[in-house]
Amino acid sequence: MTIMQSFTELVHQRQQRESAKRNRPVESEVTKLDVRNLNFFYGEKQALFDVSMTVAERAVTAFIGPSGCGKSTFLRALNRMNDIIEGAHHNGTVLLEGQEIYAPDVDVVSLRKRVGMVFQKSTPFPKSIFDNVAYGPKIAGQRNHKGLSEIVEQSLKRAALWDEVKDRLQDSALALSGGQQQRLCIARALATNPDVLLMDEPASALDPASTSRVEDLIFELKQNYTIVIVTHNMQQAARISDWTAFFYQGYLIEKDHTQKLFTTPKKKQTEDYITGRFG
């Protein structure tokens, strides 16, 4: 049970850090996203089976599970990124603040402005740093250069990248290091001013130092944002999340407070996974 103990320790450290900093309860009571009986299909193949879950506002919810378990599909269902994939369809309900996001009268574009997303592989556009961050507000109709500069600066500051790039905003974003590129992508997502930030393994392609910076950043951001993060790294989930959900073969096995899930999992499969017996 040494693995369990190490998780307990991680969660405990995090709570200490948190209470020292903000003196705020670990978990929020307000429900931001409410998913009910979601089944998801890629053509004939079913990827999610009857998943129901709530996501709390201003908290970090982590999805863990072996690859192919449906956690990324579920994440992408939350801002309808799966719409782009041909043959993808679903049934069930996804409510954002009580509104069905799959309702026929919902505008996907305005949904995605509220529910931003950061991908596993950093995807900077082949443009300058400034243009990358300004892209979201620009397409939303912000034309005023002064306003744009302000948004770019604030977003980069929030993403803890400002100090590193403030002197070279016009340089190509492709010249940044991997970790910087990923934080740039986070800044870019923040610039559209979303409520919810979905992150699909945001640190899996980064070196340890960059990973820890991104984790610190996520920790900061949950003050203002609802964050949902997919990770295959359980230590990471334990370090940064308030809630953790375990997916296996398209089913949601268990979702609980991170501390409880890692210390006293209710289900056998969860325990097997976090103690490393499979996956």
């Binding site: 505008d107 509220r114 302000e150 929030r158 900061e220």
Partner: peptide
């Protein structure tokens, strides 16, 4: 926290409106 210092970015959110509405876009 840097996040606390940010004000111009967060205009008051006037509820959530996801519905399609006529727009030039």
């Amino acid at each position: 926290s840097l996040a606390n210092a940010v004000s111009p970015l967060t205009p008051p959110k006037t509820g959530l409106r996801l519905q399609k509405q006529f727009s030039w876009a």
